[in-house]
């Protein structure tokens, strides 16, 4: 067919380099791989914003003056930051999911798919890191700037919204962007619970065809593209929010 001829040429070209990309010519496997690319993109698109929201929530919990809110949040953040994502995913999917299924006992279907569990676990894991970055950002706001705002008669709420949060966000932005890049990479653990992301689909293909290196190269390129896009967006935001002359 006409449209597959350029694919055939491309596969031929890579063969001269010693790489076997024949799987691309098989329609079923090609579609499976494309599905994997799409699922990974979806995972990133949902997880990244959710992690930021959860991060803001955890950060306000950590900074709350109420001890009954602050201490459990602190315990949760420390627990999440110091245990592997894979183990957290197993705890969520193999344990919590099991318990939920037992409770539901066929009365209703479990709304949480494996995809949802990956999103929840990775978003919460990264939210803990976001919260620490925001906390450091809030502490970096000079007390004297807040004093000046108070002396103008701004209320606590106005202080927070107009002065403290804008400055804290600007200080925390590089860390937040780094965390988001990590989150993109972390979505690969979805393959461990059989969510059809690009890693999982690749495993399916290479167990049949034994072309591990070729698939890994494609995956590396794809993740490289996604992380580049996220850090580009981060740089754009840093530029929009920059404070001219600050720090000189």
């Amino acid at each position: 067919m006409a449209d597959s001829s350029w694919l055939q040429e491309a596969v031929q070209a890579t063969r001269t380099l010693g790489l076997n990309y024949a799987f691309v010519l098989d329609a079923g496997e090609r579609q499976a791989f494309a599905r994997g690319l799409w699922v990974t993109l979806q995972l990133c698109a949902v997880t990244l914003p959710l992690s930021l929201l959860a991060g803001v929530g955890l950060a306000s919990g950590l900074n709350s003056p109420r001890a009954w809110l602050r201490r459990p949040t602190r315990v949760f953040v420390e627990l999440t930051r110091n245990t592997p994502t894979l183990v957290q995913l197993y705890c969520a999917f193999l344990v919590l999911n099991l318990l939920i299924n037992q409770q539901l006992q066929g009365r209703a279907s479990n709304p949480l798919t494996p995809f949802a569990w990956v999103v929840i676990v990775v978003a919460l894991h990264k939210a803990a890191f976001h919260a620490e970055a925001l906390r450091a950002g809030l502490q970096a706001v000079p007390e004297v700037t807040l004093e000046a705002a108070r002396s103008l008669g701004l209320s606590s709420r106005q202080l927070l919204l107009q002065v403290e949060l804008p400055l804290a966000l600007r200080f925390a932005l590089p860390s937040l962007v780094n965390n988001l890049v990590d989150a993109v990479k972390m979505t690969a653990v979805a393959s461990a619970i059989a969510v059809g992301d690009v890693t999982y689909e690749s495993i399916m293909i290479w167990t049949q065809r034994d072309n591990v290196l070729e698939l890994l190269l494609l995956i590396l390129l794809y993740f490289g593209l996604l992380t580049w896009a996220v850090s580009r967006a981060g740089r754009w935001l840093e530029n929009r929010l920059r404070m001219p002359g600050y720090g000189t």
Binding site: A188, T199, I203, V212, L216, L220, F223, T227
Partner: peptide, 18 residues
């Protein structure tokens, strides 16, 4: 750049299979 931007899982598969 390559080894910081690659997911660790992918690198582990890489070294295991390659």
């Amino acid at each position: 750049q390559v080894f910081r931007n690659a997911p660790v899982l992918v690198l582990v598969y890489f070294s295991t299979y390659v």
